[in-house]
C-alpha cells in the first residue's frame, strides 16, 4: 500500500487517540441509544423488530461517527494536504479510517444489543459477518456524503438528507439478508446473491468516490 495513504491514516488514528472525547462520545451515544431502546420495548423483542431496530441504530451511529471526518479539517489544513498529497490518496485514507471506525462501532452495537435485548439469533457468526459487511457499506456511502456536505455550510443535517435515500436500497437488502441469520429459510443461492449485490454496490460506491472526489477537493 501507498506510504502516503498509510501516514494519512496514521495521522487520523493518532488524532483519535489524542482527542479521546470524540471516540468515547460515539460509544456513549451507542450505549445510551441502546439503553433507551432496552427501557422502551418489551423484554424479549420479536426477531423482526430486533433486526429493524438494529439497522436503524447502525445508520444513525454511522452518521454521527463519519460526519465529523471532514468537518474536523480546517481550511488551512486542507490547503496543506493539497500541497503534499493527491486527492485519491486522501479519500482512500479517509475511507479506510471510517471503515475501521465503523467496524469497531458496529461490533460494540452488536455486543450491546445481545447483552441488553436478548439474543434472537440462530446463527450468531453469520449475523456478525453481515453486520460487519453492512457497517462497511454504510461507512463508504457516508464518507462521500460527508465530503460533499463539508463543502456546503450546514453540514450535519445535509449528510442525513443526502445519504438516507441513497442508503435505503442497501439497507433493505441488508435487513433482508440478516433474516437468514434468524433462521428464515431462503431460496437456494439467494443468500449468496444478496451478499454479492451488497459487495457489488460497495465496489460501485468506492469507484465513484475515487473518480468524483478529485472534483470536490479543489476549492
Amino acid at each position: 500500500m501507498n506510504k502516503r495513504v498509510l501516514s494519512l491514516l496514521k495521522k487520523d488514528i493518532l488524532l483519535e487517540f489524542r482527542q479521546k472525547h470524540t471516540f468515547y462520545g460515539i460509544i456513549l451515544y451507542i450505549a445510551s441509544t441502546v439503553f433507551v431502546i432496552y427501557l422502551s420495548i418489551p423484554d424479549k423483542p420479536d426477531a423482526v423488530i430486533w433486526n429493524s431496530l438494529f439497522w436503524v441504530i447502525q445508520l444513525f451511529i454511522c452518521v454521527n461517527a463519519v460526519a465529523k471526518s471532514f468537518l474536523a479539517e480546517s481550511k488551512g489544513r486542507m490547503l496543506y494536504y493539497f500541497s503534499i498529497t493527491s486527492p485519491v490518496e486522501y479519500i482512500i485514507s479517509k475511507i479506510l479510517y471510517n471503515a475501521v471506525l465503523m467496524l469497531i462501532m458496529s461490533s460494540i452495537t452488536l455486543l450491546l444489543f445481545l447483552l441488553l435485548l436478548s439474543n434472537p439469533l440462530n446463527n450468531s457468526l453469520q449475523f456478525t459477518g453481515i453486520v460487519l459487511l453492512g457497517g462497511l457499506s454504510i461507512s463508504f456511502v457516508f464518507t462521500l456524503m460527508s465530503a460533499i456536505a463539508a463543502k456546503a455550510q450546514q453540514n450535519a443535517a445535509l449528510i442525513a438528507i443526502m445519504g438516507f435515500p441513497l442508503i435505503i436500497p442497501q439497507l433493505m437488502v441488508l435487513i433482508k439478508l440478516s433474516k437468514a441469520a434468524f433462521g428464515e429459510v431462503f431460496k437456494q443461492g439467494m443468500v449468496l446473491q444478496l451478499t454479492g449485490l451488497i459487495i457489488g454496490l460497495d465496489v460501485l460506491v468506492l469507484a465513484l468516490a475515487l473518480v468524483l472526489f478529485p472534483y470536490l477537493w479543489k476549492d
Binding site: V141, I148, P169, V173, L204, L208
Partner: peptide, 22 residues
C-alpha cells in the same frame, strides 16, 4: 455547480440498481 454535479452523478449511479436490479 461543482458539488451538486458530483452528487448528481453519485446519486444517479446509486439510483440505477435500486430501480432496475433490486
Amino acid at each position: 455547480a461543482r458539488v451538486t454535479a458530483v452528487y448528481n452523478i453519485f446519486a444517479f449511479a446509486m439510483l440505477f440498481p435500486s430501480i432496475w436490479i433490486i
